[in-house]
Amino acid sequence: MSENHPGRRRVVIVDDHGIFRSGLKAELGDAVEVIGEAPTVDEAAQVIRESLPEVVLLDVHLPGGTGGGGAEVVKLCRDLLEEVRFLAISVSDEATDVVSVIRAGARGYVTKTISTEELIGAIDAVAAGDAVFSPRLAGFVLDAFGTSGLVEDVRDEELDRLSAREVEVMRLIARGYTYREIASELFISIKTVETHVSKVLRKLQLSSRHELTRWAEQRRIV
């Protein structure tokens, strides 16, 4: 993954709290190159268009724009999604917020309490085109799609159900396993784990399953 990019990841931090931005910057240190910061929806869209970073660390709650928060930033940059990857980073427990930013096109969701190494790993994974699921997000996916996963092989166009393998992967993420541990647990390669997670991300983004929205309204990921 990271071998393709010898240089440091170019990152933009979008968060309306200046203290959090500077704290995050200090925490990431030399691991990434912070090329821009923005506190509002409109400024974020502008900064991202000008600097074209590899990864945007995006807070879910942002002022400005039409009030859509992080999801609106992703939507404004929809044409850039091939080059610019969004990683939602939030303290929010509101499933609606998390799901809206993921469905808008973000590649992952982590909580603000994540450790620095894990965050750097997540930035790398997202930059490489993979999806990053926190245990909480995996728990939410299982809650919304169901844990049965009876179907051994779900066809790709079937967006409302998870295959048995995808359920397994989600369950292990929710149990706190790393991709490497999941791979050895299920006797598959890490690459395959990443593929499964990306597929689940795609289902989460594209599923028209009406229950998903209802779920998101009722639930908070705790």
Partner: peptide, 9 residues
């Protein structure tokens, strides 16, 4: 020591 809890169902 931090303890994270995820619940499903």
């Amino acid at each position: 020591v931090p303890v994270d809890v995820v619940a499903v169902g």
